[in-house]
């Protein structure tokens, strides 16, 4: 088996707890991730699922080193990036791209779509043939060329998320972090964006960490799943195995809590006491 893209061992992240910050002085640290071990295999989409406060977003931010872990190692292509200083991270940044939940706040309101997509290309010395590269990026995500001159407020939620994807993929990164990228979207738009990501991930052989609270979406898109709760991994396995034979009670509870779009008169009845 090929070497995984990411190999994470004993990962801990502690962040300042601002609710307990004294008037003067530092906020006490609270441990968000409490020692995680996992691999992300190359060329496939891994789902990271959990409820609010499970630490799934913190985990994503640590992988792309928006955060520095307090302990443990993050091996990316065999090199531990857990504590690399920013100067040494910079050349790696083009390989670690991200797409966020709310493209409205992650797209610069004063720049055209073309300039938003071009920015990372320019910064990484790919400033030649910018027009062609931007045109390719737009085409890749199914946006008409006429969108190049528009601004973010002229786009619908789904179109903005397409721009977010175009920007992240413009540099052909080795890794893409997708954090709740369809949470704010209507189901019909959600289906379009997920189908697009699914197609691009397969075509480009992308390694993706797909963070979501929605197990139904994860099942469709991901080859393996990591279930998180309160800063720990509850269960991690291949997608089919997880859904067909969940080992942990917590995973079973999560599945049972999803209201499927079908009639089930017993769903709301309290469980009979065991």
């Amino acid at each position: 088996m090929a070497e995984p893209l990411f190999s994470v061992r004993g990962l801990k992240v502690a962040l300042p707890d601002m609710t307990r910050k004294p008037l003067i002085g530092r906020a006490p640290l609270v441990e968000i991730l409490k020692g995680l071990d996992f691999d992300l295999p190359r060329g496939s989409v891994t789902g990271i699922v959990g409820e609010s406060g499970s630490g799934k977003s913190t985990l994503g931010r640590a992988l792309v080193r928006l955060l520095e872990p307090s302990a443990g190692s993050i091996s990316f292509e065999g090199r531990d990036i857990a504590h690399l200083p920013e100067a040494e991270l910079r050349p790696l940044r083009r390989d670690l791209q991200m797409i966020f939940q709310d493209p409205m706040s992650s797209l610069n309101p004063r720049r055209t779509i073309a300039s938003i997509i071009a920015a990372p290309l320019r910064q990484n010395g790919l400033g030649d043939n910018l027009k062609t590269r931007v045109a390719e990026a737009l085409q890749r995500v199914g946006l008409p060329q006429s969108f190049a001159g528009r601004y973010r407020h002229q786009l619908s939620g789904g179109q903005r998320q397409r721009v977010g994807i175009a920007r992240a993929l413009a540099l052909s990164p080795k890794f893409v972090l997708a954090d709740e990228i369809v949470s704010g979207l209507d189901v019909s738009t959600q289906a379009q964006i997920l189908t697009l990501l699914e197609k691009l991930a397969a075509e480009m052989g992308l390694t993706v960490a797909f963070i979501s609270h929605d197990l139904s979406v994860i099942r469709r898109l991901c080859r393996q799943v990591i279930v998180m709760r309160e800063g720990r991994i509850v269960e991690a396995s291949a997608t089919d195995a997880l859904f067909e034979n969940p080992k942990e009670a917590y995973t079973r509870d999560l599945l049972a809590a999803i209201p499927l779009p079908e009639i089930d008169a017993d769903w709301l009845r309290p469980k009979a006491p065991a």
Binding site: V187, A191, L194, S216, R220
Partner: peptide, 12 residues
Amino acid sequence: ATPRYTDPFASL
């Protein structure tokens, strides 16, 4: 369009 984990490829 509504995702269903019981039937991933007939949904979304």
